[in-house]
């Protein structure tokens, strides 16, 4: 049974529309149309009319050199950066208009190793993330148990994250991205610090995600870093996205 936000009923009422149109839009997956972003102070175009469509239950990879715009693209998709032009939607929900509902369907793993509270335990991190994902108490516990197993974190649950290795922290960060059973998971250089076992767990999590109709969008500097095969592959060159 899909997880529900605590305020889903109110949102459902607002979003009511003819079932046929709704069903059509709900099957669209991730769709970007004409997404542009300019850095005004640098007089540079970060994203140039980017178009992208990734269907449900599939994976896509975006490779590109450092500074080519991969992370900016992910930040636009997750809603941290507002594009100057174009639209982003996930299964018919617009990133700008349906903010809360849209965000509830996205898991995001940023590049690097930031985003953890040094003095909180792994278990507390998961509980906190479940609370800001607005999961009900029962759903939260179910999700926490699932990712503790999926990312081999059960033995680390009571450990503070500043006492974990970098690879273990990366497993925690990845678990947080998958925690609330999102429909789309954005992975920015996710293999960072992961050992072979960690990479395997990540691949399995992506497999589970696509098996239930989810989408994984994976960014890496080069194909050699991808560690997995994808349904679609793109290359980002100076803010332009090209299919490989």
């Amino acid at each position: 049974m899909p997880l529900r936000l605590r305020h889903d009923k109110a949102i459902d009422a607002q979003e009511r529309e003819p079932p046929s149109a709704s069903a059509r839009r709900a099957d669209q997956g991730l769709v970007l149309e004409g997404v542009s972003k300019n850095w005004v102070d640098q007089r540079r175009t970060a994203l140039h009319e980017v178009g992208l469509a990734v269907g449900r239950g599939s994976t896509a990879a975006v490779v590109g050199a450092n500074g080519s715009g991969k992370t900016t693209l992910l930040r636009v998709i997750v809603g941290m950066i507002r594009p100057d032009g174009g639209t982003v939607s996930l299964n018919g929900r617009d990133s700008a208009r349906d903010g809360k509902r849209y965000r509830s369907k996205i898991g995001y793993l940023s590049a690097g190793n930031a985003g953890l509270f040094a003095r909180l335990s792994v278990g507390r991190h998961l509980a906190y993330s479940a609370s800001i994902a607005l999961l009900s108490k029962d759903d939260a516990q179910q999700c926490i148990d699932r990712v503790l197993d999926a990312f081999a974190l059960r033995d680390l649950a009571s450990r503070r994250v500043d006492r974990l290795s970098l690879g273990q922290r990366q497993r925690v960060r990845t678990a947080l991205a998958f925690l609330h059973e999102p429909e789309l998971v954005l992975l920015d250089e996710p293999h960072n610090s992961l050992d072979e076992h960690g990479v395997l767990l990540l691949r399995e999590a992506v497999g589970d995600l696509t098996a239930r109709g989810g989408i994984a969008l994976w960014c890496a500097p080069a194909h050699s870093d991808l560690e997995a095969s994808f349904d679609r592959s793109f290359v980002m060159r100076a803010g332009r996205l090209e299919q490989l």
Binding site: V78, G79, K100, R103, I106, G115, L116, S129, I132
Partner: peptide
Amino acid sequence: VAGTFERMATSPLGPIFG
């Protein structure tokens, strides 16, 4: 600085309620 604001900003709770 720690990057935890990003986690809250991208969550369903959102940056304003957070």
